[in-house]
Amino acid sequence: MTDRAMEMVVEAGKAMLENGGEVFRAQDTMEIMAHSLGIQEFRVYVLTNGIFASAEGEDGPISAVRHVPRVSVHLGRVEAVNAISRELAEGKLDLDSAEKALHDACAIPAYGFKVSLLAGAVGSGCFAFLFGGAGPEIVTAFCAGIAEMLIMQLFHKGGVSKVFTDIAAAAACTALALAVRPLWGAGYNPSGAIIGALMVLTPGVALTMGIRDIINADYLSGTIRLFDALLCAGCLACGVALTYMVALSFWRIPL
């Protein structure tokens, strides 16, 4: 019985981390769940990419370790897992129904391909406007947004590493913004369009959560996230820079 409860609690923590929940939230949730399910001597240590837990079972100590290598943000699932922990704490769920609810929570579908594509494109266009772009920049950013979302989705399906995906997406939107220059004429500023499209790729989540973790005194988790942000920002800069250099040296397109 304790084994099953332990398994369920650790899986809930894993689901939380995998879908973009914070470290302290995952830890809190697991402790609350374990307490509600009556697991004895539950101890857990959570990192950005791993969970270590131990407890006292019926036939001696039990432990559970989970590795969470890849995070893809799905806040709907975080909310659902949080709801399970609250209902457990209020005594509305027992172990069986909680297991079922967790299974359902992890199966909440993501928004469809077309919807994400449109969201990326509209988001890019909006940001081009917010950063001072006019008509040409907004339209270009919209198209660049479609291109980068396509790359992100396809590379993600193909299992390409995150580093290369970021470089390719940044390079693609820079290339597109530079390529349409003759189309728009003198009033067009490629930087405006590129910034709009890049906003969708920026590591805002990792950056902010990293600093938040550090302020929460989770130094190790914060450092992991900050490095993640730094790497992502480096990749974006790299993608933009490479495309500029290629454009400059092969086609003499000025910056």
Binding site: G20, G21, E22, R25, V73, L75, V78, E79, N82, F127, L130, F131, S191, I194, I195, L198, M199, T202, G204, V205, L207, T208, M209, A233, L236, A237, C238, V240, A241, Y244, L255
Partner: peptide, 26 residues
């Protein structure tokens, strides 16, 4: 009755210094 992360992560996005990252590289 939802985790604050849900709103925070989305809402801070306009303020993330994306333009800063771009200009630094530029």
């Amino acid at each position: 009755r939802a985790p604050v992360t849900l709103f925070l992560l989305c809402a801070i996005f306009p303020l993330v210094p994306g333009a800063g990252i771009y200009y630094t590289a530029y």
